[in-house]
Simulated assay, not measured.
Amino acid sequence: MLRRIGTKVGIAFLRFLAILPYGFVARLGDGLGWLLYQIPSKRRRIVHTNLALCFPQWSEEKRKDIAQKHFRHAIRSYVERSVQWFGSLEKLTKLVEVDSEVDLTDPDMPPTLLLGFHFVGIEAGSVFINVALQRQCAALYQPMSNPELEAIAKQARGRFGADMASRADSARVVLRWLRERKPVMLGADMDYGLRNSTFVPFFGIPTCTLTAVGRFAQVGHAQVLPFIGEVLPNYKGYRLKVFKPWANYPTGDDDADARRMNAFLEEQIPRIPEQYYWVHKRFKTRPPGMPSVYD
């Protein structure tokens, strides 16, 4: 009962924020993130651990600076769910700048996997790419522990014409979508456990990485279009950055294809390191015999 009430209050608050100026909402989230970073917490330790593992060459001062900036971005991204989930199409169109290396409106686009990465702007990018494509597309989502929140998130993420399906139904549904020539959006750069995963390097660390992207691309004869949702400076909104399809992909080698995804991230994260999702336990699943890094 208390969780249900809390969910309703939280969603009502987000709906209220959606009608306020974006700059105010973004600054509110930024300030809240700064405040929460000052309080020692499990999530703050996770951020510091991830940065120390991936960037040992950085000074301690630089890692702390990036950690604080990331915490501000991460909390801000949750507050900005307000405009992303409930803001009008007109408002989102003004906030999202599209920078694409391919013609997203090409009527002859082949079967396509839209591969999103977990930078803090992924929600804005994922919601708006439905608009930029100017066609019906589809997306996979990760089930939430709160079913009421999941239902609201699913509706919000699909409100511009996207079919939605749980990751649990992914194989059968994704292949059907690809046959129907619907661009399919998915994210695969998180630790989902050993199933359908392999250990390949990510910033030199053996990392549990999904193999689903290469397999879907191979079976569905699909191209892979990577995209990133970036947060613009000075509270100006977002950039939906879409890259060219990966060449010579998939290879049919699960390890090589998973490594390709991590290599892409290694190229992009240094541009905006404070915006990658370091609050996630990216190295939670360890190779046999290797100790946890989060104890």
Score class of each variant (00 low, 15 high):
Leu2Trp: 10
Arg3Ala: 12
Ile5Leu: 15
Gly6Cys: 00
Lys8Ala: 15
Ile11Lys: 03
Phe13Trp: 15
Arg15Leu: 09
Leu17Trp: 09
Ile19Ala: 15
Ile19Glu: 08
Leu20Phe: 05
Tyr22Met: 04
Phe24Asn: 05
Val25Gln: 07
Lys42His: 13
Lys42Met: 02
Arg43His: 09
Ile46Arg: 05
Leu53Ser: 09
Leu53Phe: 04
Lys62Arg: 15
Lys64Ala: 14
Ile66Glu: 01
Ala67Ser: 03
Phe71Ser: 01
Arg72Pro: 05
Ala74Phe: 14
Ala74Glu: 00
Ile75Ala: 10
Ile75Thr: 11
Ser77Trp: 07
Arg81Lys: 14
Val83His: 08
Gln84Thr: 10
Ser88Gln: 11
Leu89Ala: 13
Thr93Phe: 08
Thr93Glu: 15
Glu97Met: 11
Glu97Ser: 12
Glu101Ala: 15
Thr105Tyr: 03
Met109Leu: 15
Pro110Ile: 06
Pro110Gly: 04
Thr112Val: 08
Phe128Ile: 06
Ala132Pro: 11
Arg135Phe: 05
Arg135Ser: 01
Tyr141Asn: 05
Gln142Tyr: 03
Met144Arg: 05
Met144Tyr: 08
Pro147Lys: 11
Pro147Phe: 08
Ala153His: 12
Arg157Ser: 00
Asp163Cys: 00
Met164Lys: 05
Ala165Arg: 00
Ala165Phe: 00
Ala168Ile: 07
Ser170Val: 13
Arg172Glu: 07
Arg176Tyr: 00
Trp177Met: 11
Arg181Lys: 15
Pro183Lys: 01
Val184Thr: 15
Met185Tyr: 01
Gly187Tyr: 03
Asp191Ala: 00
Asp191His: 06
Tyr192Asp: 05
Leu194Asn: 13
Asn196Glu: 14
Ser197Cys: 12
Val200Lys: 10
Val200Phe: 10
Phe202Leu: 12
Gly204Asp: 12
Gly204Trp: 06
Thr211Val: 14
Phe216Leu: 13
Gln223Glu: 01
Val224Leu: 07
Ile228Arg: 02
Glu230Asn: 02
Gly237Gln: 10
Ala247Pro: 06
Asn248Leu: 08
Pro250Arg: 04
Thr251Ile: 04
Thr251Val: 07
Gly252Ile: 07
Ala256Arg: 12
Ala258Ser: 12
Ala263Tyr: 01
Ile269Gly: 01
Ile272Tyr: 06
Tyr277Trp: 09
Val279Cys: 05
Phe283Gly: 10
Arg286Glu: 08
Pro288Trp: 09
Tyr294Leu: 03
